[in-house]
Design a protein around this nucleic acid. Structure first.
Length: 740
DNA sequence: TCTGTCACG
DNA sequence: ACGTACGTGACAGAA
């Protein structure tokens, strides 16, 4: 598992996956190979040529006998013996067999893989023109810009004109808006302008001199017309500071595109280029490059800003016109309307609320960790016989594998460094005591830098709370992600790490933290989607799922399942959600591959529905090009037909995993919307504050504890009914650790 | 800006 | 012979 497996040569696994995600498919990456720089470009172009060649050879494998090839290229007089000799010399053993036939085999084996494989000749010519064209096309695309495009962008400054524009937009059933601000923090930054558009090519920009200028527009946002924005959550939060509540219905172009193309990027500039062939004025042209010297919006000349801002609103409006029919004719529209759009104000509220973090606790903990780190550091230097940077994998690798010679055949990463990942080190830990110290050093250093030292820095000076940002359009499966800080990866697995959770505390003495989480949600989803009788029965009877699995797989009664057996079954249950194979299971459990294979075979025999579900998922991906969640959220898997086995397998595992992970994501999002709604309508003081994929965290007023507990569990369990029971559990405490 | 590592579900 | 479990984000070091 530690190996750095490419899939695309010359590239690490993570990078390869990221690119595949970003470009949609391996072929797209190769088509855009020329956009890359340096070594990466070299590798990609070389690989593209190889891929092309192997594709052609694969075509030969599939259908075309050698006689046809010879005839086509008018090579009849080349004799087969010559080819035989050539192939032998080149060591084309398989190809010799398939093309010339094998005297031991009656017929050249014919691959049945590619459905409707085109014949060799069209395949060859298509391939050739295909790549050349796309490369030229991509290089040749010229986007329209503001200077060559007809537009009517007006600067609206005096009070009478503002009233006029307001009245105009009050009449519109649908309008697009965009706020210009001094920065990205809704709590401290100010709105300096409002851009509006309700017609292609037309835009208005209203500079905001005083709060009153903006508050004038309150009625516009609170009536029942459709409000369009790109990344609506941000504008919601900015306007909230002025007491303006933007009421539904909404349309967010970013979210619409997220549901149409979940793997791609959803920035306005990209959408504009793709769907409007138009390149908007870049923000850098206004305020300069990121870093020192970058201006803020209020320092930009208002005439210049007018064009930028009005254009943004105009472009967003045009994107709405393109994306609206697309999403409405798509199965993902249901998720868009019932999940993603209603979730926007919920997330806006959660971010606004933030969570209280005990800074002095963390600072004390930091001192403690620092002492330990220093002590370990000294021990490592002594054992290594020199001082070096332990945090540098390059230097560490040299110490371990060159100086101390801990492993003769140490593996290297793609970049030629020695691998020093956790799993590698654990295997080495018996050879030298320095290894355990390095593991400890890494663990503590990580804890300190990423959490203990970083979190207090992010406490907001105004609210004294930490406000994360939930990104609704990053994870291709439909999950949320959390940044700045990421509050979805606070440690829990180790005792030292867990301590950090003690720093996440309730608002005050009158509040407590309530944590509610789904029990085995992904396994319940797969049980429901597959309708496997064995797995459904286990959930219906409410027995521990891993014990039930162990009983079936090892053929023993539920009562006599050993810890060991349960542990193995648990690992299989988790692995199966991701499409893990015997190799991975063996690696994970430290057992032989033979044993791992036996367990997996036994598993599928006992749960035939699961196997069928997986086959069906892959089959569906092949025929539709995408897979779907229960609610219809899609994920395209364009690599499902890839000739590259690694890349194809990756797509197949995604076909299995995406519907499961995505359905669970849809479910908790629905629960959040309903809980938020209930809290609002019952005028409760308690607040939703965090979501961690299968867990919700609330700051609960003690007087409401019973009520909120019931409410949260009920809404979580009933948000999206499955064919098996959905169970949610809870905990309460002064801090996150106690509550979990 | 990329890579390796590691934190979570 | 190849490569082997999904989805994220942050930090430090190297290029």
């Amino acid at each position: 598992a530690s190996d750095n497996i490419p899939g695309i040569p010359g590239m690490g696994e993570k990078t390869a996956k990221k690119l595949i995600k970003q470009y949609g498919s391996l072929e797209n990456i190769l088509d855009h190979a020329h956009e890359f720089k340096g070594k990466q470009q070299e590798n990609l172009i070389q690989y593209r040529e190889q891929a092309l060649l192997s594709k052609q050879l694969a075509t030969i494998n599939v259908a075309v006998p050698i006689d046809h090839i010879l005839e086509h290229y008018e090579l009849k007089d080349i004799n087969r013996d010559a080819i035989q000799t050539l192939f032998e010399e080149l060591e084309f053993r398989q190809l010799t067999k398939r093309v010339l036939g094998d005297s031991n085999e009656a017929e050249a084996p014919v691959k049945k893989v590619a459905p409707a494989a085109p014949d060799l000749f069209s395949a060859l010519s298509e391939n050739a023109t295909d790549t050349e064209l796309t490369e030229e096309q991509a290089a040749a695309i010229q986007y329209h810009t503001i200077s060559g495009t007809e537009h009517d962008y007006q600067l609206i400054q005096d009070a009478a004109a503002i009233d006029q524009v307001l009245n105009l937009f009050m009449q519109e059933n649908v309008f697009c808006f965009d706020t210009e601000t001094t920065g990205l923090d809704p709590l401290t930054d100010r709105v300096i302008g409002l851009a509006l558009s309700a017609q292609k090519g037309k835009g208005y920009y209203v500079p905001i001199q005083s709060d009153q200028d903006l508050i004038k527009f309150k009625p516009l946002f609170e009536q029942s017309n459709v409000k369009i924005a790109q990344n609506l959550k941000f504008d919601l939060q900015m306007l909230r500071q002025y007491g303006i509540e933007v009421k539904p219905p909404y349309f967010d172009t970013m979210l619409a595109h997220y549901l149409l193309e979940p793997d791609k990027r959803h920035g306005m500039d990209e959408l504009s280029k793709q769907y409007l062939q138009y390149e908007p004025v870049s923000i850098e042209a206004l305020i300069g490059k990121k870093g020192k010297g970058q201006l803020t919006m209020d320092q930009v000349d208002v005439q210049v800003l007018k064009d930028y801002a009005a254009e943004d609103a105009d472009v967003t409006y045009q994107l709405y016109e393109v994306l609206k029919p697309m999403i409405e004719n798509d199965q993902a529209n249901a998720v868009f309307q019932t999940v993603e759009l209603p979730l926007v104000p919920v997330l806006a509220d959660m971010e606004h609320e933030g969570i209280k973090v005990d800074a002095s606790f963390l600072q004390a903990y930091s001192v403690e960790l620092n002492q330990e780190v220093k002590a370990i550091e000294q021990r490592i230097y002594e054992q290594a016989g020199e001082v070096f940077n332990i945090a540098s994998p390059l230097q560490l690798g040299k110490i371990l594998f060159e100086k101390l010679q801990l492993d003769e055949k140490a593996k290297k990463t793609k970049t030629g460094q020695y691998q020093t990942g956790e799993d590698v080190l654990i295997k080495l830990s018996s050879k030298h005591s320095i290894v355990q110290d390095i593991l400890d050093f890494r663990g503590l250093q990580k804890l300190k830098s990423t959490y203990v030292d970083a979190l207090p820095e992010l406490i907001h000076p105004l609210t004294h709370r930490v406000h994360t940002t939930f990104n609704q359009a990053v994870a291709a499966t439909g999950r949320l992600s959390s940044t700045n800080p990421n509050l979805q990866n606070i440690p829990i697995r180790t005792a030292r790490g867990r301590e950090v959770r003690k720093a996440f505390i309730a608002r005050d003495a009158e509040h407590v933290i309530l944590s509610a989480d789904y029990s085995q949600i992904e396994l319940r989803v797969i049980a429901s989607m597959s309708e496997d009788p064995g797995m459904m029965e286990a959930f219906n009877q409410g027995i521990d799922i891993h014990t039930a699995t162990a009983a079936k797989v090892f053929g023993v009664p539920v009562e006599s399942v050993t810890k060991e057996q349960r542990y193995k079954a648990k690992s299989v249950n988790f692995g199966l959600i991701y499409g893990q194979g015997a190799f991975g299971l063996a690696e994970n459990l430290g057992i032989s591959r033979t044993e791992a294979k036996q367990i997996i075979d036994q598993y599928f025999e006992q749960f035939p529905g699961i196997r069928q579900y997986m086959d069906k998922a892959i089959e569906g991906a092949r025929s539709n090009g995408f897979v779907s969640t229960l609610l219809g959220r899609k994920r395209y898997l364009r690599d499902i037909h890839s000739a590259n086995a690694t890349v194809r397998s990756f797509a197949e595992r995604n076909a299995i995993n995406a519907p499961i992970q995505g359905t669970a994501a849809d479910m908790i999002k629905l629960a959040m919307i309903n809980i938020h709604q209930q809290i609002k309508s019952q005028q409760l003081k308690s607040k939703l504050i965090l979501q961690v994929h299968d867990e919700l965290l609330l700051d609960v007023h003690v007087s409401e504890l019973e009520q909120v507990k019931q409410l949260v569990l009920t809404e979580m369990q009933n948000a999206l009914p499955l064919k098996v029971p959905v169970v949610a559990e809870y905990g309460v405490g002064q801090n996150w650790l106690e509550a979990h």
